[in-house]
């Protein structure tokens, strides 16, 4: 093997990382472990932002608690690190006040589906205007590897030393049954497909859900003797099956079993705001004054923002 010189030589000024306009490179290296998959999804998100042509001012990123909860600190968009499980309620507020922006919830499975599970299903039911990116690593990694609602049967956790016997959640099934308008699942190896999926989902309205299965090298792989994150990436390479028309029964993930990935749902359903406007226009007619979109200042014309106006609306309805 001939070892040739690296070009260009080290004396030359090294160009900036291409993602440095969208990610806070001054905070790197980040806190995630070696061989963790979360960094890949953040990179794909930055690529998707680039592809849509949206400026970072047009996007908000909200995270909950956990490893993936740290994402909010690494993107250059307006971001917030909420309390445990409350990333979706926070974004519901953002989506109602600023319907002109793109709202992204970037969090983990323990945060979104376990403690925030109720918020998740109700935001999906109402078709709230947000993109939810859930990085699923099958465990509560930051707190030391407890049993998560996504841990596959027979996989070990600190609170299940003899293996789990609970049926785990299948997150796309949950999102589909709750009524999400866009549902996709990829593994962190499908970098181009994640990017395409995020690009597509950023341009839609309504509740969009993307599950990304990511390797947890330090906790999940070590406790289950699966090698390192690199071995899990090889496992994704060999065992992921792309099937866009998969039935919900095929979406369950067993311990080291086949993983069905793909874009499962992409339908147009009126979002929460649109349904509200249509309903009130029908019921109230000309009396209904829709909220002014794209204004941070709360306008007087916005019915429902103050108590007095709220009562007048209800009075009108009653009369």
């Amino acid at each position: 093997m001939t070892v040739t010189e690296v070009k260009p030589d080290t004396t030359r000024k090294i160009p900036e990382h291409p993602k440095s306009l969208l990610l806070r490179m001054d905070r790197m290296p980040h806190i995630w472990c070696s061989r963790c998959g979360i960094g890949i999804t953040v990179g794909c998100f930055a690529s998707a932002m680039e592809k849509t042509g949206l400026s970072p001012d047009d996007i908000t990123v909200t995270s909950g608690i956990g490893c993936t909860g740290r994402v909010a600190g690494y993107v250059k968009a307006d971001s917030f690190h909420t309390t445990h499980g409350r990333a979706i309620p926070f974004t519901v507020g953002l989506a109602l006040t600023r319907p002109d922006l793109k709202h992204v919830v970037f969090s983990g499975d323990g945060d979104l589906i376990s403690i925030g599970g109720n918020h998740f299903i109700h935001a999906a039911r109402r078709n709230q205007n947000m993109l939810v990116i859930c990085v699923n690593n099958f465990t509560y990694a930051m707190t030391g590897g407890q049993l998560a609602p996504t841990t596959p049967v027979t996989a070990r956790a600190t609170t299940a030393p003899y293996g789990s016997f609970e049926r785990p959640f299948s997150l796309p099934t949950l999102a589909i049954s709750a009524g999400a308008s866009y549902v996709a699942r990829w593994t962190s190896l499908h970098i181009r497909r994640i990017t395409d999926s995020m690009t597509e989902a950023l341009q839609r309205r309504g509740f969009r859900f993307i599950e990304i299965i990511a390797p947890c090298s330090t906790i999940y792989a070590r406790r289950n003797k699966l090698g390192t994150g690199l071995d899990l990436m090889k496992y994704y390479y060999e065992n992921s099956v792309i099937d866009h028309n998969a039935s919900v029964d095929d979406l369950d993930i067993g311990f080291q079993s086949k993983i069905v990935v793909g874009k499962f749902v992409d339908k147009d359903r009126p979002s929460y705001g649109k349904s509200m406007h249509e309903h009130f226009r029908k019921v109230l007619g000309n009396k209904y004054q829709p909220p002014v979109s794209g204004k941070m200042e709360i306008d007087k014309s916005w019915s429902g923002c103050t108590e007095s106006q709220d009562t007048t609306v209800t009075d009108e309805v009653q009369s």
Partner: peptide
């Protein structure tokens, strides 16, 4: 080790979790 083989496919850039 083989700089001449690179075809600028960006895969290393996208798959790197550390940027």
């Amino acid at each position: 080790i083989h700089p001449d083989r690179c075809v600028n496919c960006d895969l290393c850039e996208r798959i790197c979790p550390e940027f």
